[in-house]
Design a protein around this nucleic acid. Structure first.
Lengths: 127, 127
DNA sequence: CCATCACTCAACCAGATGGTTGACCACCGA
DNA sequence: TCGGTGGTCAACCATCTGGTTGAGTGATGG
């Protein structure tokens, strides 16, 4: 599994609110599947699936204690994400500070007709 | 749109390798849809869709310059992720250093029969 | 003014995802 | 040894995702 694939899995794993909540709770303490599932109104199987996704992403590991399968957070994987994010954040911020880029933006302001976040539709029916 | 939803969108947006690559390239410089699409062997429409996902996640904004739609990286959203990640990473690391937790782990070592990352199947057909 | 450029929108498709239920399995305790 | 506990596996379902092609749009420029 290469780094791109690992990054994809980790980001995808954390894209789900239930899974983020599981991670948040596991940051405080290890827990069994049953304990983890209790607060949610979905089936135990669904939570078990979520944990599999987290495990495949390397965010979590499971050991065995009698019938129980205690789940443990592997926080090191966070580094992978943080590094990726920080790299491009800093690159973008550094670029923002550069003079020629500032000139580009100023020049852009002239030729640009407007800046839009809304869609084109909304403005059409204003005619 | 609440914070949970925003987090979900940002993580989901970055779960795709093509989208991560787009972000990486936009960290270096703004670009048009055509420029961004050129390196990939997918259709322009597919890239346009990817950019919509990034825009909905707040990672990117589009303005207008004649027929062109220059795409600009909005690096501030990265903060949202970084904050979330760092919170639980630190919590997990802090917990790891605590003494009583260390004792828990030592005690766990005794009752635990084995630690496994592989599935149960693999061991069954070893009989 | 109309052809062209740079896109976006719409419809469709295959495969992934998140949920369900039912069967199954490992292990403990009586 | 056998019922109960804790959890996984399998099959199925609806919805989402990433891709396609084809048609449509808005501004430019000759």
């Amino acid at each position: 599994m290469d780094e791109q694939d690992r990054l994809s899995r980790v980001f995808a794993a954390l894209a789900d609110p239930t899974r983020r909540d599981l991670v948040a709770r596991l940051a405080a303490a290890d827990a069994t599947v049953g304990e983890l599932a209790a607060p949610y109104d979905v089936s135990l199987q669904a939570v078990s699936k979520h944990l599999k996704v987290l495990e495949d992403a390397g965010l979590v590991s499971r050991s065995r204690d009698a019938q129980r399968r205690p789940v443990h957070l592997e926080a090191e994987v966070f580094d992978l994400m943080t590094k990726w994010i920080e790299r491009y954040r800093q690159q973008a911020e550094e670029r923002f500070r550069r003079l020629d880029d500032l000139l580009d933006r100023m020049q852009h302001q002239q030729t640009e007709t407007r800046t839009e976040t809304e869609t084109d539709q909304q403005r059409e029916d204003a005619s």
